[in-house]
């Protein structure tokens, strides 16, 4: 493997960069450019090479190795294949969301995003002028006919067998076609090189391997927390929600759970008129919504944070 990898320190945590990429980059004479573009973050430490059970050499930042976590499962997880035999699905109950924002902060925390940034958004929506507004959390919908995956020129975003739309940040060229192709604005871009985490911060928050990594100039998005789901644990947004808004589960089992209740997916969608946002686009999202009827909370507008303004409302497509 390639020890030159140390110089391109563009991932803060689960550094599963394939040595091939770096080797080929140097071989094609673009190593110089790579050095010019590399992030200005301080090095987090030495890289350690590990041999995974399926014979792949993976390289991990030494600071990532935390012996307290029995995560031997993780090294088996192929980023491009997904958990066999599963089809992950999410149901979001809009009648329960009051914009508590816990899903967002849990997402930011577990994906090492800055506080003001997360892969899940909570949007104020209003179906018509006379209807009451409601909050609609939007993660990535992990569509079965994904427009983002269709347009990716290099296969940096792809569909996994378990339904998840994954991203390979070591493959992504940063053309942002997937971002304009996504009708749900689910994707975010790593615009700058400033955002960084030091070792202490990283040790405080247990790392997820196999999640989206943060590489400057590449696209990121919600990944349904594959490390959690591989261990049969609910994604962090689901666990963090105090109101049980998110149900997560396996479509094959036809069962979803929000941590408190476990219900039949088909029954839940039938009983509560589940729908998918902008169904007529034909993207076949894996995220369903339950309409905001019989609400648990009256709608209360959010206090506009100082850095955000101009909250606009919008009609939803159901």
């Amino acid at each position: 493997m390639d020890s030159n990898n140390n110089e391109s320190n563009d991932s803060r945590r689960d550094f599963l960069r394939k040595g091939f990429v770096a080797t080929a980059a140097v071989a094609t004479g673009v190593g110089l450019l790579e050095t010019a573009c590399k992030d200005t973050k301080p090095k987090t430490g030495d890289k350690v090479k590990l041999l995974s059970p399926d014979g792949k050499i993976v390289e991990v930042d030494s600071s990532m190795i935390n012996p307290a976590i029995p995560d031997s499962l993780l090294s088996k997880h192929n980023v491009r294949e997904g958990v066999p035999g599963k089809k992950f699905v999410m149901v979001i109950d809009l009648s329960r969301c009051k914009n508590a924002g816990k899903c967002k902060s849990a997402c930011s925390k577990m994906h090492y995003l800055p506080d003001n940034r997360s892969y899940i958004k909570i949007n104020k929506m209003q179906d018509s002028d006379k209807a009451s507004p409601y909050w609609m959390p939007t993660p990535c919908f992990h569509c079965d006919n994904p427009p983002c995956v269709k347009v990716c020129p290099v296969g940096a975003t792809f569909k996994l067998t378990d339904g998840i739309v994954g991203i390979d940040n070591d493959r992504c060229i940063g053309c942002r076609f997937c971002m304009v192709a996504c009708p749900y604005s689910a994707r975010v871009f790593n615009w700058d090189t400033e955002y960084q985490l030091n070792i202490t911060q990283m040790n405080e928050i247990k790392p997820h391997a196999a999640c989206s990594t943060h590489v400057t100039g590449t696209v990121e998005k919600c990944d349904f927390c594959p490390t959690q789901t591989a261990k049969n644990e609910l994604p962090d947004c689901v666990q963090a929600c105090p109101n049980g808004v998110f149900y997560f589960g396996d479509e094959v089992e036809d069962v979803v759970s929000n941590g408190d209740e476990t219900v039949r997916l088909s029954q839940l969608l039938k009983d509560k008129s589940g729908y998918r946002y902008l169904e007529d686009l034909g993207t076949k999202p894996r995220v369903y919504y339950l309409p905001p009827v019989n609400r648990q909370f009256p709608f209360k507008d959010a206090e506009v944070p100082p850095d955000a303004e101009g909250q606009t409302t919008h009609q939803s497509g159901h």
């Binding site: 599963k86 049969n232 644990e233 609910l234 997560f248 589960g249 396996d250 089992e253 069962v255 979803v256 759970s257 941590g259 209740e261 476990t262 219900v263 039949r264």
Partner: peptide, 11 residues
């Protein structure tokens, strides 16, 4: 009575 599932047990 429940059936064991990936992310919880279905009553």
């Amino acid at each position: 009575f429940l059936v064991k599932k990936s992310f919880g047990s279905l009553p």
